[in-house]
Simulated scan of single mutants.
Amino acid sequence: MNSNSSPSAALQLCYENVNGSCVKTPYSPGSRVILYTVFGFGAVLAVFGNLLVMTSILHFKQLHSPTNFLIASLACADFCVGVAVMPFSMVRSVESCWYFGRSFCTFHTCCDVAFCYSSLFHLCFISIDRYIAVTDPLVYPTKFTVSMSGICIGISWVLPLVYSGSVFYTGVYEDGLEELSNALNCVGGCQVVVNQNWVLIDFLSFFIPTLVMIILYSNIFLVARQQAKKIENTGGKTESSSESYKARVAKRERKAAKTLGITVVAFMVSWLPYSIDSLIDAFMGFITPAYIYEICVWCAYYNSAMNPLIYALFYPWFKKALKVIMSGQVFKNSSATMNLFSEQM
């Protein structure tokens, strides 16, 4: 559009001829194609990647373990982000308008927060599980049972859903910011402004579990290092069968802890920019440019698509399960009892 165009001609609304419509700030056609491609790819990967993880763990009986049930539930939370959150956020981010109604805006925001906190809680419980498995591998099966895993899964779903629903359906998050909220939420808008108190609660809800995971995984790797040195020092000596078994179990648990540690690091790297930006923004008068906010949000969303890639790179059993599923062998009656582990495992 040339510089001689009038301001009224340049102005675009989300809903033409509707009083109170939000002003639309669209990207160029080329930019829109790129953004839809990038965001759409993330949503598709989050949906199908996590669906494969859930299918693998639930179908193959060899994968039925407390840890893997937690991983499957984590994949379910990420799957929900890919289905219920990312597609609608994609349209809002690219079109700069919300076309799905005010009621669905609240529901979408509630799902966004709930599923993301559910992922965080799952990762926190997984880190506790790995800590017990590495520090006390022989006693671990009696401490972290399937029932205990079920309790952790229940907490990881119920608490985020109750918290998110109570905050966003009561409107307490915008106490003191009603005028700003009304100005932003014109017709075609779905912008949530959260007051300083709830932003601080959100940040602590992210920071405290993250700190717990950092402490636990730091201890895990210290113990793993000590175990590796002990095994190395006794390499030339004759080991009893019990000691040999303990060494194999410890090695297996360390490998699992390493992979899940990478998952935790990926989560923190993805979510830290958004968490810090939200905290700073609330205390600095919401000064973050829209494009910076969108980058932080989509870095966080993309975490839901990253976990299946991590499993594919580091879990041999997931690679084998993928081959069975993609080749159609999964429909055979005997597929559920297939051996997905190498003899060394």
Rank of each mutant, 00 (worst) to 15 (best):
S5H: 10
L11C: 06
L13F: 11
C22L: 02
C22P: 03
V23K: 06
S28T: 11
I34R: 11
T37L: 14
V38Q: 06
F39V: 02
F39A: 09
G40K: 08
V44A: 15
V44P: 12
V47M: 15
F48I: 09
G49I: 04
N50T: 05
A75P: 04
A77S: 13
F88H: 02
S89E: 08
M90K: 01
V91Y: 12
V91E: 14
V94H: 14
S96E: 04
S96F: 01
R102H: 08
R102A: 06
R102C: 01
S103R: 03
T106Q: 05
T106P: 00
H108W: 08
D112K: 00
C124A: 13
F125L: 04
I126G: 07
I128K: 07
D136E: 10
P137S: 07
K143M: 08
T145L: 03
S166L: 13
S166H: 05
G171K: 04
N185E: 05
V192R: 02
V192G: 01
V192E: 01
Q196S: 13
S205Y: 07
I220C: 13
I220M: 09
V223S: 06
R225N: 13
G235Q: 12
K237P: 00
T238H: 10
T238C: 04
S242A: 14
K251V: 07
E253C: 07
E253W: 05
A256V: 04
W271Y: 14
W271H: 10
D281V: 01
F283H: 12
M284F: 12
I287R: 11
P289I: 01
P289Q: 03
P289A: 04
V297Q: 13
A300T: 03
A312F: 15
A312E: 14
L313A: 14
A321Y: 11
K323Y: 08
V324C: 13
G328L: 08
G328F: 09
G328V: 12
V330D: 02
V330C: 04
F341K: 13
